[in-house]
């Protein structure tokens, strides 16, 4: 729970820094983002955690458009990390053997940190590239990526999903039921 709270606060501060620590009255409404995420972490509520992520990424997007893009990317990475930690806290780890759970938590934190850093690195790497693409080229590329992603998800779902279950009429009756 505490890492999730720290992550959401860190993401909020990164966005604030990206916007130059603005003190505009409207800015304070954005406190809702860490509040919702923090509430989700404390209450271990899946919906609130998701809403917190969406709000934080929305803030980061606003910061990327109107401020420092690097800090905005960092905020997104922190928000994703915080979301992972919040979901980990929902797993009721207190019911397990403390030594095993400590090992599991360390592995989860390591995996999440690695993914967040990798994402940050990819984001920073792409933002430093200077490539000129025609508009429809970008649209086509995105559509192709989207299609590839969907196909990948379907393939994964088919390979690791329920599998092997019968379909259709599976009446257990041995008698003629007409």
């Amino acid at each position: 729970m505490i890492p999730a709270l720290l992550g959401s606060v860190g993401a909020y501060l990164a966005v604030w820094a990206a916007l130059g620590f603005t003190r505009e009255p409207l800015w304070w409404a954005s406190l809702a983002a860490p509040l919702v995420a923090g509430l989700g972490a404390v209450l271990r509520h899946r919906g609130l955690l998701g809403a917190g992520l969406y709000l934080q990424v929305g803030l980061a997007a606003a910061a990327a458009v109107g401020g420092n893009r690097t800090l905005a990317l960092g905020a997104v990475a922190l928000a994703a990390w915080s979301w992972d930690m919040g979901n980990l806290a929902r797993a009721r780890l207190g019911l397990g053997d403390p030594r095993r759970i400590r090992r599991l938590v360390l592995a989860a934190v390591g995996r999440s940190t690695g993914l967040a850093l990798a994402g940050l690195g990819v984001g920073l790497g792409f933002s430093s590239l200077r490539v000129r693409l025609p508009f429809w080229g970008v649209v086509g590329g995105v559509a192709a990526s989207w299609l590839a992603l969907v196909l990948l998800l379907r393939a994964v779902g088919r390979a690791y999903g329920l599998g092997g279950e019968a379909r259709g009429n599976r009446s257990s009756s041995l008698r003629f039921t007409g």
Binding site: V57, A60, A61, A64, V65, R69, A72, L73, V76, A77, A80, D84, R111, S112, G114, L115, A116, A118, G119, L120, V122, G123, F126, S127, V142, L149, L153, V156
Partner: peptide, 18 residues
């Protein structure tokens, strides 16, 4: 494009994690 860049860390997180 700034918005599209913001999606990149999430996309990597999603693909890697999944």
């Amino acid at each position: 494009p700034a918005l599209a860049f913001v999606a990149l860390p999430l996309a990597v997180h999603l693909l890697g994690g999944f």
